[in-house]
Design a protein around this nucleic acid. Sequence first.
DNA 1: ATGGCCCGTAGAACGGGA
Length: 261
Amino acid sequence: MSLTLATWNVNSLKVRLPHLLDWLATHRVDIVCLQETKLVDENFPAAALAEAGYAARYTGQKTYNGVALLTRNETVAAANDVVAALPDFEDPQKRLIAATIGGLRVVCAYFPNGQAVGSEKYDYKLRWIAALTVWLRAELAQHPQLALAGDFNIAPEDRDVHDPKAWAGQVLFSEPEKQAFRDLLALGLVDSFRLFEQPERSYTWWDYRMQAFRRKMGLRIDHVLLSATLAKHCAACAIDVEPRRREQPSDHAPVIATLSI
DNA sequence: ATGGCCCGTAGAACGGGA
């Protein structure tokens, strides 16, 4: 059977809930990883999503961050063994939620932005990713079928950046960040998007300013990485730019991977 | 040539995003 797994940074689930509900109704994605919900758990729209046929597991905070895992009740098992933070990493920021869905371990992550190379937040970003990498090594040992999906805030290669010369050395595209991404791949993870032929200038984020979307000035910073075992069953991966065309869009587009399992 | 937005918390700007 075919199973779809998506990641989408919604940049406020309160504002984007109508978009998300429309998108779920038309795409019927089985598993959805959300980032930047910006909602405390009491305000999470669990009822509206249940009405739409999705169960939700989530961890959020006021104003910033917040992640969620949605599972389509008709097609996939409920989420079990939920982990709502990185173990062994003291962090008040709600950036990670993981669960087992059927035989699949799904990790939904909102990597820190890093603000500027050399800043305190940049240092935090690298430390956060290092802790994630350590934890994932153990997760992969336990769960051969694992997906790491989310907003990585890293464009891994030149072709993931509209103007790599201008972005060289900048946050989201600095060498230490790209190295951290490669360290994740070295765990045995595969960038599902690059398993397939893709259009030129494929991006997942465009600045709200400067008509960046219309001018195709974006970055590919949202990713679905798959364990080697799972990557063998990946039949497709695509960025859905349609939600970015709507009124009042998120600045990120969703990425959808299709698994034949 | 430069920089032009959006969201949440406010209850006016400002921090943060990327």
